[in-house]
């Protein structure tokens, strides 16, 4: 089982609260939500990757649980300026889910139960940078935090880590998502403080 340590991204020494610019530290886990919280039963849950040619790869909950899990410990940076360091998760690496997916697409549009969307380059989902996470601090992920499963892509602002993730659509052309169409930065790198359009 792979463990991604806090030093994985090499941003700073362990224990040094070196926050991205403009961020402050929290110890609780604020809940941000742009709509009603979906209450999904795992037996109704499905996750799909759809390629640019329309080829669909689908996993139900049992299929997700059957895949090798990783336990990344990562820092979270919300665009509303709070950061939470050293959070521990369990989930399946997107590298595992993309193993049998053939695609020449450069972009991904992530869809959630409830209608939320967010976009990012496909390469930001690969190479150990992203997970479909279903446990937080050793417990099943609460619906308020995106359970039963959410995308976790901690090197970007947290709005990219779509809660209640339902699928990833691969696209040749970038398609801005829910917040990206309303003023928030298309990429959202917290270390470059890419909060808003033009940042």
């Amino acid at each position: 089982m792979a463990t991604v340590s806090r030093g994985f991204f090499g941003r700073r020494r362990s224990g040094d609260p070196d926050l991205p610019p403009g961020q402050y530290l929290v110890t609780d886990f604020p809940v941000l939500s742009a709509g009603p919280t979906p209450r999904l039963r795992t037996e109704d849950w499905e996750f799909t990757i759809t390629t640019e040619t329309g080829e669909k790869h689908a996993w139900d909950w049992a299929a997700l649980m059957a895949l090798p899990a990783q336990t990344p410990t990562v820092d979270l940076h919300c665009v509303t300026k709070w950061s939470k360091l050293g959070t521990s998760w369990r989930g399946v690496s997107l590298d595992t889910l993309f193993e049998d997916v053939e695609s020449a697409a450069e972009y991904a549009l992530v869809h959630s139960y409830g209608g939320y969307t967010t976009n990012l380059p496909l390469q930001d989902l690969l190479d150990g940078q992203a997970w479909i996470a279903y446990e937080f601090e050793g417990e099943p992920l609460e619906p308020e935090h995106g359970g039963p499963a959410r995308l976790l892509v901690p090197h970007l602002y947290l709005w990219k880590s779509a809660k209640w993730v339902r699928g990833i659509q691969l696209l040749h052309d970038d398609e801005p998502g829910f917040w990206e169409t309303a003023g928030y930065h298309n990429y959202g790198d917290p270390w470059r403080e890419q909060r808003y359009w033009g940042d």
Binding site: A34, G35, V79, T80, W159, W179, Y196
Partner: peptide
């Protein structure tokens, strides 16, 4: 919905998003 990166107003009939208002510096 205000506990979000912006204000999100939803339809009282169907919950669809009516408006999003984001305030930046």
């Amino acid at each position: 919905y205000t506990n979000a990166p912006g204000l999100v107003g939803r339809c009282p009939g169907c919950e669809a998003v009516l408006f999003r208002l984001v305030r930046g510096p």
